[in-house]
């Protein structure tokens, strides 16, 4: 039981962060505006959660310009993928124990 709880990752303990990780699990890379549309979040809110996940090295950021517009793309790192998969497995195990 204690083991499972350890795998529940506090970093994913928020709707927006959970959403970001879910989107990046199934998409190679996603830009800021598309992410915003999927999650229905505000600019500032999304940016702060992205920063937190980036600090944990769960997602990577690639900045580029399309014409004159800045375009930032996000993708999941191998560490992030593993952490999120562990998190999902832990959630499933916790629920199946009941």
């Amino acid at each position: 039981m204690k083991n499972i709880i350890q795998n529940i990752n506090k970093a994913f303990d928020h709707r927006i962060r959970l959403g970001i990780m879910s989107v990046l699990m199934v998409n190679e890379s996603v830009d800021f505006n598309t992410m915003k549309e999927f999650l229905g979040a505000t600019d500032g809110n999304l940016a702060s959660h992205i920063k937190a996940l980036e600090a944990d090295a769960f997602i990577s950021v690639e900045k580029q310009f399309i014409g004159k517009k800045p375009n930032t793309k996000y993708s999941i790192t191998p560490i992030g993928k593993k952490a999120f998969q562990d998190h999902i497995n832990a959630l499933e195990k916790l629920l199946s124990q009941k």
Binding site: R15, M21, S22, V23, M25, F38, I88, L91, L95
Partner: peptide
């Protein structure tokens, strides 16, 4: 937890 799982699944299919 159940809600979290549901949300993960929904977001995965919605975004892909």
């Amino acid at each position: 937890y159940l809600n979290d799982l549901k949300e993960i699944k929904e977001m995965m299919s919605k975004s892909s």
